[in-house]
Amino acid sequence: MSVLIFIDQSDGHVKKSSLEAITYGADIAKQLGVAAEGIVLGTVSDDLTALGKYGISKVHQVNNNALNHVDAQLYAKIIAEAVTLSGAKVLVFSHNQTGKAVAARVAARLKAGIVSGACALPDTSNGFVVKKTVFSGKAFANISIHSDIKVISLNPNSYKTIVGEGTATIADLNIIVDPSRIKVTAINKVSGDVPLTEADIVVSGGRGLKGPENWGILLDLAKELGAATACSRPVGDAHWRPHHEHVGQTGVQIAPNLYIAIGISGAIQHLAGVNRSKVIVVINKDSEAPFFKAADYGIVGDAFEVVPQLTAAIKKMKASV
């Protein structure tokens, strides 16, 4: 019996959200008194033995470059086989793009119950109960999994990685890889940018910024903070910003350490996507804006004046430490 953690990689690098999943899976293994192991698909340039520091003793790898693109069908088949081979009883994913494509599919294949979007360790005192976010972050549900094998996908940014000591051994998994039925014809990655769902800091703009030509002040602040950028729905709808930046109930749901909302009113549908952020800062010229009720810090003021000053203040502060 063991806990198996799916390690997601992109361009040969292990994703930050996977390090969280590894730490989380290793903690479940400790709780159950069993071993924690990982599985990675495709060719990886990162040193996989170093993942031992996050609490896993072994990494199973299917070292085949045909797996460098996610094909849920192939991935599900291979991961399910690895679960069977390794005798894992708990399978952990990050609830990122890959997790959303693959986790439920593997669960169906194994006839295993799944909790997707988990945000805390399972309660194993009486059965196996996992807490997850529901109603787009407005509430939590405790879900009991009844099946022998359990699948959990963990919300990004909801479990802190812990770096300890240790090295993992690498075991090559000899599994036949079927030809993919998906032909990838183009990849458009915004290089250098921090993926929104993994970002520690997110700077977000709303209709209060008046037009796309005014985004410079926001981008400067984001750059100074090493932050990802986001926007409200009307901003995405008006194509002021790319639609994948749209956060909220009908957009991306995020939980960064710091969310800075600039010229966003804080409609309930917007809050639903960002209210799991640890610290929320609101900059809005209207002191009655609903967002202030959900905020930790706020400035009532004109974004066009406040934001450049904030960028300058942070720059100065960084220079002095």
């Binding site: 458009n188 993926p195 994948h244």
Partner: peptide, 10 residues
């Protein structure tokens, strides 16, 4: 996909 988009034929 993580950090961008991918175009695929199926």
């Amino acid at each position: 996909v993580d950090g961008g988009e991918e175009v695929a034929e199926v």
